[in-house]
Design a protein around this nucleic acid. Sequence first.
DNA 1: GCGATCCAATGCTGTCTCGGTATCGGGTTC
DNA 2: GAACCCGATACCGAGACAGCATTGGATCGC
Lengths: 90, 90
Amino acid sequence: MSLTYIQSFVAVAEEGHVGRAARKLHLTQPPLSRHILALEDELGTRLFERTPRGMKLLPAGEVFLSHARRILAEVDIAIERTKGPGTGGR
Amino acid sequence: MSLTYIQSFVAVAEEGHVGRAARKLHLTQPPLSRHILALEDELGTRLFERTPRGMKLLPAGEVFLSHARRILAEVDIAIERTKGPGTGGR
DNA sequence: GCGATCCAATGCTGTCTCGGTATCGGGTTC
DNA sequence: GAACCCGATACCGAGACAGCATTGGATCGC
């Protein structure tokens, strides 16, 4: 599990498209595709249904998505709170 | 930022000792020391005070610690919830 | 039906990250 | 002041990872 992979997952879930998400993340399609496969492998579950039009979130994917967003948000908060107030940031 | 580094940080904070935390994580002392330095660099703040006895958490470190624990807990929950119920895990 | 098109997945390669070993430098203890 | 304990750094080799090129499957247009 890695924060990078979680970010990739969220981007693909939001775009419904590996290629499009890749551009958004300044990556190319193959590594992003592998991120999703790695996550699915680690979780032991398919997160997306592969359709000719792109990637469609499966129920397990929706569950993971909500947690993924929370995790990323927590990380942002942690960074902000730590570097910000107590340290003479602003 | 990486989950591995966050785990390292929590271990060092709990042990008050890089070497001891390293053993706990099945790592050696140098990489663990680098994890902490990398985090401090990324956050732009010292998280620990280096003493002759080990590592003492600074205020910024305590702030980050509480968030770090929450992040790791969220990840665990995400994994459990995703692989577990909705998917026929059991 | 067949070529064109769009999608994700895979094979391969170069690079960069990361962990381990060895060593250093500072500070304390006796 | 020599031994000891601590984290930090230099260096090196292995593994991870991104990118390029290509494949394979499904749909669309003619």
